[in-house]
Design a protein around this nucleic acid. Structure first.
Lengths: 252, 252
DNA sequence: GTGTTTATCGTCAAGCAGACGACTATGATC
DNA sequence: GATCATAGTCGTCTGCTTGACGATAAACAC
């Protein structure tokens, strides 16, 4: 259909971020408390308007830096420095998803290591890392006994989609290393998989699998004992981004 | 960041469609010829503006029907009737992707069986099925010796992303059946895989794999001989949407 | 009938995954 | 310092899946 560029319905375009990390053996997402209506006082995903001269990925990277101080990676580059992995997730555009106006939100997924200085936003009361299970259970009670209100807007759906993307993507890519610091052990990587998938994995088979996949892990030569027990070799993420064959989630 | 809903940059939002089918053993995409600037006379992906009261998926389904006469499926439902599979692909929002104004395009991917009545748009000169290889090779020559100009806007990138999505998705899902008519043979399904991946597959191993995956194929009892040779059993798509274990592309 | 084409069944070896035993190297505890 | 608990690392075995490929079956063309 030939279209008339001068007569189009006006939209606002935002980016929303699903920022995931692994803390205390649990998959956690960054949530911010809304200070104004609609959904005032409720938790929501961080996000904001795309600026007039800004690409979508740029806008997402900017929001990520504003909220967490992390800098974003190119999604096609191997995970090497201390930046976070950032990729587009999906776009949500139900006409009624924002009661004020027509807003189309391009959601992005960010994977970050557990931050040494967890300063989400700076204001401890307005942002927090929350286990995704807690954010997604509707009507349940949070860790503090606080009534867990559902996330604002359609953010529960967005978060669920982001979590599912992360869960499936670590199957066939080396993205799980994005949850780890620059140097990490096989055990730490395994605990990432266990937290993201919510299962227990056999340490011996996991070790065989990840060390046997060429390009996945590169030994740095060092060892660490920060987990207790026998010292473990330290690794960096290798250049491989795709795991072949993939590491499939256990059934059921 | 708290945002002010009354002060936002205005965007136009469109949907663009990557409609794929398999014709004559080749993966083909629907292309339309642009009748007006910019990129007048060049080939482009079908698409159009999202209306003010329309969801993104609705807009994509409407465009698909307008361009092909196909009706769209729910992406989570098994492929059963004569509709096409439709899912969101990705969103493209570079500030300069449309020279006229700021346009954010939510690309969708549609997979359709080879249409008995290929009436793309109705105007034979303004729409056609073209092999994706031809649409993506820049500066080459098409089948008619016609200079193959690159697709308009960033549509070559969108098409490439859609093709890659289709290629990877038939690995671990039953989506390849979306390219087949309601009843099909194992050989027809194999030719779909061969066309989409651009490889040759062993008929015996393929047969073993697809008939051995529970829920993938349901025999209808009938047979056909439309491909020549020994009559083949007819199947319908089963209820399974995820193949476990997946059918991985051959390496290299 | 002979040849051609496609479908379908079977066989075999290589590779990989899950279950699990065994040993090692550290810190904690008595 | 001996013992224990913890975590890491190396092997073994078994069953399943895959890739390569032989063999047979059922249609059509001549």
């Amino acid at each position: 259909m030939p279209y008339d560029p001068s007569a189009f319905p006006p939209f606002a375009v935002t980016v929303d971020l699903v920022v995931l990390t692994v803390r205390r053996h649990a998959l956690c997402a960054l949530a911010v408390r809304r200070g104004e209506p609609p959904f005032q006082g409720r938790w929501a995903l961080p996000g904001g308007f795309v600026r007039a001269d800004e690409d979508l990925a740029q806008a997402a990277a900017r929001e990520l830096t504003e909220e967490t101080g992390l800098c974003a990676h190119d999604p096609n580059a191997p995970v090497q420095d201390n930046g976070a992995h950032l990729e587009q997730l999906a776009t949500y555009g139900d006409p009624k998803r924002d009661p004020r106006m027509r807003v189309v939100s391009v959601a992005h997924l960010a994977l970050a290591p557990d931050l040494p200085a967890p300063r989400p936003g700076g204001d401890a009361n307005s942002a927090r890392w929350a286990p995704v299970e807690e954010l997604l259970q509707q009507g349940g009670y949070g860790r503090d006994g606080e009534q867990a209100a559902p996330l604002a807007f359609d953010h529960a759906q967005i978060l669920a989609d982001g979590v599912e993307r992360a869960r499936s993507k670590i199957e066939y890519s080396s993205l799980a290393t994005a949850f780890c610091p620059a140097e990490f052990t096989v055990g730490e990587l395994r605990r990432v998989y266990e937290a993201v998938w919510g299962v227990a994995l056999d340490p011996r088979n996991f070790h065989r699998k990840v060390t046997g996949t060429p390009g996945f892990l590169v030994p740095t030569g060092g060892t660490t004992t920060r987990q207790g027990g026998r010292p473990a070799q330290l690794f960096r993420a290798g250049g491989a981004t795709l795991l072949n064959p993939p590491m499939l989630r256990p059934e059921v």
